[in-house]
Design a protein around this nucleic acid. Structure first.
Length: 334
DNA sequence: AATAATGCCAACCGCGCGAAT
DNA sequence: GATTCGCGCGGTTGGCATTAT
């Protein structure tokens, strides 16, 4: 037969917040054993605690461990978390290994309560790290309320782009081009998403250049972007696949060579190392995309000089915050 | 001042994987 | 080989603190 049962299902073990005496007992027990826990299962009894071993482990790893760094997250840590999340997703424990003194629980909480909201308010999807379509941007002045969740279909994205472009005949041809493009590439979900993004980006580009006589190059740029990279990603994500693969390889080899933020003094160097790792990858080759895409891109562009001004939601005031302004400009400058 | 709404985070829950039996 | 558990993980919750009305 297998092992003996765990204490966690015992109704008599205490749950809920830890008291000072319990903390003291746990810390002293671990210190008596030279900082080595051994078996968490047997620890509560040995330490004189009426707790489940699992509860002891959580209390120690998330709160009592002596190397835990308390206090607010620095800008460097925040940037690193964003970048790591882009590469690794919700793998909080892996992310935590890159930030010395921070626990997975702490990072997870910080992400959910701070960073996620900031990204949303900036118009960035915190899950995909891609720019949200205009329809899903959060409106400033809404007392901080989030927009209702919504899913924008490719067709809706195109309609949105069309509406944003106004009713001029010349723009309809652009939208028709988008439609053709979409029809050609809807066999791949990821590229559909890219088409959605491009449609929204087109709308944003239109807004940005509403007083310019040279919108056509911008549109061409959007087309090229889709054809050659399929996604418009923030700079910090452009080489994420390589970064993620490297991280996986690291885990497989159980080699902990990843940069760790040890102090503000050498944090810049650590970030530089990450930059180097991220910049090692290359964009997907254009030939991996259907020929129809290339054909669409090669069509002559119409002059869109007389476009109607575009009504788009305003981004929130975070754009004027130095830290977030830096991220916005570096990732989404057109 | 009272109440409601929201923010925050420590702790819990349940699951998957690998190890022990 | 089958069974059972320890451990670690990500998701969720409960309750206190703070802010808004």
């Amino acid at each position: 037969m297998g092992r003996s049962p765990c204490c966690c299902h015992d109704a008599n073990v205490k749950k809920g917040p830890w008291g000072e005496e319990e903390d003291k007992a746990l810390v002293e027990h671990i210190q008596r054993h030279g900082g080595h826990v051994g078996s968490w299962r047997s620890l509560p009894k040995a330490a004189g605690l009426n707790r489940c071993g699992k509860s002891c482990r959580l209390r120690w790893t998330n709160y009592l461990r002596p190397d835990i760094k308390r206090g607010n997250f620095s800008d460097d840590e925040e940037r690193l978390i964003i970048r790591l999340h882009a590469a690794l997703g919700n793998r909080w424990s892996t992310i935590a290994t890159h930030l010395e003194g921070r626990t997975d629980n702490e990072i997870k909480n910080y992400w959910n309560t701070h960073i996620k909201k900031k990204l949303l308010r900036m118009g960035i999807d915190p899950v995909t790290h891609q720019r949200l379509p205009p329809d899903l941007l959060l409106l400033d002045g809404g007392a901080g309320h989030l927009a209702p969740p919504a899913v924008l279909s490719p067709e809706a994205a195109l309609l949105s782009a069309a509406a944003s472009l106004g009713s001029l005949d010349t723009t309809l041809r652009q939208v028709q081009l988008l439609q053709n493009l979409l029809n050609a590439i809807t066999s791949t979900d990821g590229v559909v998403a890219a088409a959605c993004l491009m449609a929204s980006n087109l709308a944003a580009t239109t807004n940005a250049t509403k007083n310019s006589s040279s919108i056509a190059p911008n549109f061409q740029e959007q087309m090229n972007m889709l054809a050659h990279a399929s996604y418009q990603l923030p700079d910090y994500l452009r080489d994420v696949p390589s970064f993620a693969e490297q991280d996986m390889a690291q885990q497989l080899n159980t080699i902990t060579t990843a940069p760790v933020l040890r102090s503000s003094a050498d944090s810049a160097e650590s970030n530089q190392q990450i930059d180097q790792r991220c910049s090692a990858a290359e964009l997907a080759p254009a030939e991996t995309y259907p020929q129809e895409v290339a054909a669409a891109v090669d069509r002559p562009m119409q002059d869109l000089a007389n476009l109607e001004p575009l009504e788009l939601p305003n981004l929130c005031s975070l754009e004027f915050d130095p830290f977030w302004k830096d991220i916005l400009e570096s990732n989404f400058s057109s």
